[in-house]
Amino acid sequence: MSRGSLSLERLNPLTTLTGAAAVAVITTAAAQWAFSLTVLCGLLFLTLQQVRAAAALRAAAAILLPFWAALLLLHGLFFPEGRTVLMALGPAAVTREGLLFALDAGLRTGVFVLAFLLFSFTVRVPELLTALSARGFPPRLVFVIVSALTLLPAAAQRIARIRAAQEARGLVIGRSLASRLLAARLQAVPLVLSLVHESGERAQALDARGFSGRQRHSSLGAVPDSAPQWAARRVLLVLCLAAVAVRVALALFGGRA
């Protein structure tokens, strides 16, 4: 199922979840585009080591490319605090400050999105469910958390199914962006409708199989864990807290806000 020693599938899901959260928090707290860029490159390298790298990168591109384009348009052209005008375009102006702001925000968002996509596309859902349940989380809450964290991979599979049905009835998806966008438009409504329809049915089946019961659940398989992973999770949490504390201190005592 996995390839290479950097495969995240072998890790305890709480380790990868803590890692994703820590990367997002620390990068946001650091608020330095160079730092964000370094982290993003690291995440890209790590993504490429995973079995589902292509699917994760496609999902990241689908989210980030439109977002980055909007950032560039909004802040690159209309940044109120922009002083250093690089190019004047009538009422709009490309400013150095605006571009830097867009770069900073874009990279931070990129880190956030890629970190969580990397987690969603590598996590073994049964293990995450077991790990959270074993820590006393209510089953319904666990299911909501797991569903939210794995929504994109699940939606990707569903879209593939809808696309197969549509292609079987004459939909031709070309390679151009316009063709793909039109296809995405045709698949968006069926995707949402089918997810909503299935969720009701699924909830009944889960209830009938005792998923919402209050008794303590047992587990068929053990979730892999180790002392180094346990320690790593705590170190990451401490680093998160430290990063937030430094950020708050700098904001309160005159550092760069």
């Binding site: 859902v125 199989r209 019961g213 587990s219």
Partner: peptide
């Protein structure tokens, strides 16, 4: 529709209801 969708093996799916009990 009967399946949990949160188990990735046949054994895990069979175990699901028992685990909940």
């Amino acid at each position: 529709a009967m399946l949990s969708t949160v188990r990735d093996t046949v054994a895990g799916e069979l175990a699901f209801g028992l685990e909940n009990l």
